[in-house]
């Protein structure tokens, strides 16, 4: 029972026109706490469906998915929402920041739905922004921040509720390669401090920073490879704590 993620025959079918599309078919995966896993595959390979299921945004057609011991497949929408808030932190390709709110408010936002008092919300949001190295940019709105900084705000937002799992969907897809490296270095630093990360990408260079790569093709998991991660910080020469 020590697995963070445990899927058995995880399957997702979508009704489509005159039939059913098997977006994901019979995936068996297990992930331990503290792992940094990349999910790779071309578009249509099922990796996004996998991410949605793991992120509790969707529920499987068949099979089982246990997140930190809790079976997700049969949960009510309410409990599913609560689970997302408690256990998952999302990082998206296009950041998804609220454009008119400053960094601090963006990071405070998820705690709004957890009934956390404003004072604690603020304190934690400040800590989370410090953790991603944006202590000096707390009151900047997204338009006043670079892409990399925006993604850091998004990462702080994902971390602020203390999730079990950080889910990143093409986190470097909208960034230049240098900034992308910085973001991956941040992920690695976070991972070293104990954060479990699942990163979906189509880019093998990004997957190389993880310690394990899941390769998807045509809705199936066809390879599950553990490998030594490339050190992103070393590639840009910036020391990370």
């Amino acid at each position: 029972m020590d697995a963070l993620i445990e899927t058995r025959d995880l399957t997702r079918h979508y009704p489509s026109g005159e039939g059913v599309v098997a977006a994901l078919e019979g995936v068996n995966v297990s992930m331990r706490p503290g792992e940094f896993v990349a999910a790779m595959g071309p578009s249509g390979s099922g990796k996004s469906t996998f991410l949605n299921l793991i992120g509790c945004l969707d529920q499987p057609t068949r099979g089982s998915y246990r997140l930190a011991g809790e079976e997700v497949g049969t949960l009510s929408p309410e409990r599913l929402a609560a689970l997302r808030g408690e256990k998952i932190g999302f990082v998206f390709q296009s950041f998804h920041l609220l454009p008119r709110s400053d960094a601090l408010s963006n990071v405070m936002m998820p705690m709004l739905y957890r009934g956390i008092p404003p004072k604690i919300r603020r304190e934690r949001a400040e800590m989370a922004l410090e953790r991603v190295g944006l202590a000096s940019r707390m009151h900047h709105t997204p338009s006043q921040l670079s892409g990399g900084q925006q993604q850091r705000v998004a990462i702080a937002r994902a971390l602020v509720c203390g999730p079990e799992l950080l889910l990143a969907d093409e986190p470097t897809g909208a960034l230049d390669s240098r900034t992308g490296l910085e973001i991956m270095a941040l992920f690695q630093a976070l991972n070293r401090s104990g954060v479990s990360i699942l990163c979906v990408t189509h880019d093998p260079d990004v997957a190389a920073f993880a310690g394990r790569t899941l390769r998807f093709r045509d809705g199936r998991l066809f390879e599950d490879e553990t490998h030594p991660p490339v050190d992103a910080a070393a590639m840009i020469g910036v020391p990370f704590a």
């Binding site: 604690i120 410090e130 190295g133 203390g162 910036v238």
Partner: peptide, 15 residues
């Protein structure tokens, strides 16, 4: 580039 702080956040109080 910022220097991230590795200290994890304290557990979120129950709300």
């Amino acid at each position: 580039v910022a220097r991230p702080v590795a200290t994890p956040l304290p557990p979120l109080p129950p709300g």
